[in-house]
């Protein structure tokens, strides 16, 4: 499970029944699930809550490359078959990022440090194979909304989504060593070694200061749920 080490069942609920298993097996055969089949890369990395940067989690991104400048990722708390789905991250090229309005740019984080420091890893994939892609990712920006805060003990998804930050080499962006160590042991990798091997990956010439907004501005963002008049064309509910 994410980072809490909590052995309690998340979420609560009964085991899947036989009748459900039968239906699920049937629909799995009959339905094509085409978009899901496009996710063909697994990345193990970490993220930090914007609303409270003392909280860091391990994440598992399953990535669908829509094109060379845009990735869409389903983010899970682990790589187990019953892993909670904890959010969605979008990844865009520096070119697309620079075209965004400034207010939008504030919501994105950079990936250069995450790659160079060895946090961003492809379990079971040889580093030499991943290398060309790592060079691309180092220049990208991500926007990650987390919808299930398992690390704080939420048995079910609660509240509003949280905007997540990427690991950085300074201040609140520095990852807890034990969090990294646990990941490394699980996949038999060494983040330190990855860091050394990635030394030759070029730092981006320019990381937009609107990204990782907290670093320059000491501020982060949270979402409030507010009650408003609903614009409607019929009664609700």
């Amino acid at each position: 499970m994410a980072s809490s080490g909590d052995e309690d069942q998340v979420p609560p609920g009964d085991p899947v029944t036989v009748s459900t298993l039968v239906i699920d097996a049937g629909t799995k055969i009959m339905q094509r699930r085409l978009p899901v089949k496009q996710m063909n890369t697994h990345v193990s990395t970490f993220a930090i809550y914007g609303g409270d940067m003392s909280r860091q989690i391990e994440t598992h991104h399953y990535i669908h490359r829509v094109n060379d400048e845009f990735l869409q990722c389903a983010v899970f708390a682990s790589d187990h078959s019953d892993a909670p789905l904890i959010g969605i991250e979008y990844v865009i090229s520096d070119r697309l990022y620079e075209n965004l309005p400034q207010d939008e740019q504030k919501l994105w984080h950079s990936h250069a440090y995450e790659v160079k420091s060895g946090s961003w890893a492809y379990p079971r994939l040889p580093e030499v194979v991943a290398s060309p892609e790592l060079k691309n990712i180092a220049k990208t920006y991500g926007k990650f909304w987390c919808t299930w805060q398992i690390d704080r003990g939420d048995k079910l998804p609660m509240g509003a989504p949280e905007l997540m930050m990427s690991p950085q080499g300074v201040g609140q962006g520095v990852l807890r060593p034990e969090l990294v160590k646990r990941r490394d042991e699980k996949y038999n990798i060494s983040t330190d070694e990855l860091k050394q091997r990635r030394a030759e990956i070029a730092e981006p010439e320019w990381i937009n200061p609107m990204a990782d907004y907290w670093k320059q501005h000491g501020k982060c963002f949270v979402l409030d749920i507010v009650t408003v008049e609903m614009n409607r064309n019929e009664k609700f509910p």
Binding site: P161, G218, L223, I225, T227, V228, M230
Partner: peptide, 15 residues
């Protein structure tokens, strides 16, 4: 929504 409209709003907070 208990019959009400609900919206998410962004708020800046100090780290």
């Amino acid at each position: 929504g208990g019959g009400k409209g609900l919206k998410l709003e962004l708020r800046e907070v100090d780290i």
